[in-house]
Design a protein around this nucleic acid. Sequence first.
DNA 1: CTATAAATACTCATTCATTGACTATGTCTC
DNA 2: GAGACATAGTCAATGAATGAGTATTTATAG
Lengths: 185, 185
Amino acid sequence: MSPRPSAPLSLEFILLGLIIEKPMHGYDLYRELSRLEELTDVWRVKQSLLYALLEKLEAAGFVTSTLLLTESHLARREFRPTPDGVVAFQVWIALPVEHPRAVRQEFLAKLYFARKAGRLNALALCAAQLENCQEWLSALQNQSSSQPPAAFKNMVDRYRLHMIQATIQWLQELTRELEANPSNV
Amino acid sequence: MSPRPSAPLSLEFILLGLIIEKPMHGYDLYRELSRLEELTDVWRVKQSLLYALLEKLEAAGFVTSTLLLTESHLARREFRPTPDGVVAFQVWIALPVEHPRAVRQEFLAKLYFARKAGRLNALALCAAQLENCQEWLSALQNQSSSQPPAAFKNMVDRYRLHMIQATIQWLQELTRELEANPSNV
DNA sequence: CTATAAATACTCATTCATTGACTATGTCTC
DNA sequence: GAGACATAGTCAATGAATGAGTATTTATAG
């Protein structure tokens, strides 16, 4: 009477982003995703999973679908964003991720779309993410104060420290570049 | 007629490691894991999942179980390592992980047990992992040669670069400390 | 001394996630 | 006009994971 709770939407927003750019049916989306190397480099989906994720987006109310029945084509189901979906997507590309492990795929996906929405969006995302990183850093430093130096816990903490600091450096690098490059607004 | 392939054993080796230290039944294991802060900091398992993972280990032939029926106790199923299991575990703590994302949990888990098996084991593991990191690094540098500087692909590659380099630095730090500290052999 | 709370030791149904294979129609090519 | 390929999507099956439930023993409080 209490099943596995379903994970919150995350990489599904990639599909939503593509649908917002241009309404499409599942197979088109699949080809788009396979074609866009920048995205496949960050996220790969099998065809059958893609359809399942589209259902998830539809269940969330972020897309609607209609069956297209033309004479010249196979039947296909076209997906369009809902107003809710558009808002949710804008929020998604504005909000930083809440855990270091989500930088690898989800933050990069956000960055991909934030850049397409203009340099300022990308800069805002990076700034917000930098703030989160700083918080992770101080939480780590508070918690791990004064431990035996050769303790395992200490090694784990220092791993996390290195990862967060590297992320911060990378984000600062990105920020500088985005500020320097006047390609958009 | 072709289902989801089951993932290879990875964090299940943590359970195997504890069972090798001392044969136990499921509930004991659960408490051990909850008690050992160093491990819970890296990996948490729900009770019901733990039993499922024990079945997986048994299916792999790495543990056997026997039902203990004493008068004074509730019935419990005790798990013991098989010879195969002991060998597989030794191999596991000697081999580095094959992807940066596996450092966060699996490598740390390996390190935890490698240290307990003696300083030299931990040093060997770190050395092997460093080699893998170097390979990741050169693969990345080969592949991403000469890209447009402000391209998304470039940002992704630089993220990966930062992560790998930070991992290398951390491993070198660890290595120096393990070499300095004469706590074991 | 007994009710009841807590610990012990698992089990289970259910749901989510993910996969490879399959179906079925249309189009191109030789 | 037959075979190959692209289009468009469906499906059954399995693995992964969860919260809740069961049942017995032990501690605790009134």
